[in-house]
Design a protein around this nucleic acid. Structure first.
Lengths: 291, 291
DNA sequence: AAATATAGCTGACATTGGTCAGATAAATAA
DNA sequence: TTATTTATCTGACCAATGTCAGCTATATTT
């Protein structure tokens, strides 16, 4: 009897649920209830505001307060009133708390590493994980504004260029293309956005400002693992919204007929094809959209 | 900054943990604590013996007993002493319990279906899930003896034949090959095993008995998603153990040089290459092993 | 300034999950 | 037969989690 698609997903779910149970058990080994460990983790991962942690973990305010108190009693966490608003509090790890956080991290990392070591095909396994994480996390994607020179942005851009050089018949060399100056994609002239899914970059897009009169969409990239989830469309919405905020009246972009899914998307989103508006050697299709 | 392999696994883990949390929440929506829902689920999925359920869910005997009692009070479950051993008890769903179980199943199925509907590439997504589930569940694989004519066995065999016809230059047609009579792969003459991972078949292997004097390994197949995890080796161990139990003094098998990983495995396991011992048109490599 | 809203804390309480030491009844060994 | 082992159940207990109403201090609105 052939397993149905649903059977396969359910089996996946069962396996993975068991796995997270094992992980939780190993966390308990550090002598702290799971709730407290989760709060410690959230703080260690950079969440500072008590309210933000509460929302992220879905905790009742009373429970949150008590967990925080127990971490303070252990000497792992310090809380202070937020400078701008003394009703709110920010939590920070002490030295000891940082060490404890790292111990939990080690548990997770070791487990991840062992999985990797026991699998014959890392690349496929990781690609599978990226694909699933993107599919499951598609509603939790955050569009973060970033400096295009940040390491994360640079990584996205390098993936983007690598993809172009794979897909263009004649290859792609970024120095031959009109490489927008980073400062043109930074406020107040423009902007650059990275799509983050659970802390991992899975897409990016830039808005290059042209003397305040018009803007250009550049460097729109979505990780292969996240394609088909309408992420590019959502990135475009973010970029257009920003262009409107910056008072731009028109947006343009260039692309290439060797990227047919991109061309199709711009058409679908209501962009109109126009004449060539630059002398970049790579693009051969040009679009415009009035805001 | 490039995400490391560990980053990618951890992100996967976070996403999937959130997902299971959501699932658990939706289970709570039926007004029953998670523990009780899990027991109901185990029974619905065919686990009957109280002890087996307890082991599967990792519950303390006292807690198990109380959860079972609460399900009985709700009229969802009936327990009876086991016929062979009246100390043990078997639990069965009542009509009402069956309906409640189905309601939980619907929740899971609906969620799975929605994921499927929202993804552009079902085949890749499912393959990714199979790959990960096999990697994570590799230590929980069960080798179940089955009739080779069972639907599950038939499905494995059809996958096996499909693979052969893809990989053999001249294709493969089962009726041209020496198709062992199913009864030769059933006790007491032989055996057929299916490797089950969380309820899904991911591999199989048969032992064909030849008049009690010697045995032949047939139909050794491992699902593509589970390759590289030494599953074939473990299947071979199970088959050899059974051959010994059946008093066979020697095992033989035939294979094909177009399946180099299989040939390499037999060599690695200490099998010795021998002369052709049958007139099957497909194999061109023959092995033997004394027990 | 007074009223209102917000963020977090505290105490009281219920539920759930988990543990343990017997109790009971049936099976098995001596 | 009697003693021992096994499978489950019961009662007592505890820690963790979750919920709620009210409290305090600060910010915001009127």
């Amino acid at each position: 009897m052939q397993p149905t698609d649903i059977d396969r997903i359910r089996r996946f779910h069962r396996t993975v649920t068991r796995e997270t149970g094992v992980m939780d058990q190993s966390f308990l080994g550090r002598g702290r209830p799971l709730g407290a460990a989760r709060v410690l983790n959230a703080i260690g991962r950079g969440m500072e505001e008590v309210g933000a942690i509460r929302d992220y973990l879905g905790l009742d305010s009373g429970l949150m307060s008590r967990l925080l108190r127990s971490l303070e009693d252990e000497g792992l966490v310090e809380t202070h009133p937020a400078p701008q608003d003394a009703r709110r509090r920010v939590a920070r790890l002490t030295h000891k708390g940082r060490a404890e956080f790292e111990a939990y991290e080690d548990l997770s990392n070791t487990r991840a590493q062992r999985l990797l070591d026991h699998h014959p095909n890392r690349a496929d396994l990781l690609a599978a994980m990226d694909l699933i994480a993107s599919a499951l996390g598609q509603h939790a994607v955050e569009f973060v504004e970033a400096d295009p020179r940040d390491p994360t942005s640079v990584w996205c851009l390098s993936e983007y260029f690598a993809e172009l050089s794979r897909r263009f018949e004649r290859g792609f060399e970024v120095h031959l293309s009109r490489d927008p100056e980073a400062t043109d994609m930074i406020a107040p002239k423009g902007a650059f956005f990275v799509a983050m899914s659970d802390g991992l970059p899975i897409g990016c897009g830039g808005l290059k400002g042209h003397d305040g009169t018009w803007g250009e969409v550049k460097r729109l990239w979505v990780s292969p693992a996240a394609r088909g989830l309408k992420l590019a469309t959502r990135l475009m919405e973010v970029i257009e919204a920003r262009a409107r905020d910056l008072g731009m009246g028109v947006l343009r972009l260039d692309t290439n007929s060797q990227l047919p899914e991109a061309v199709a998307m711009y058409r679908r989103l209501g962009w109109t094809e126009i004449e060539r508006f630059n002398d970049d050697p790579y693009p051969d299709v040009f679009f415009e959209r009035r805001l």
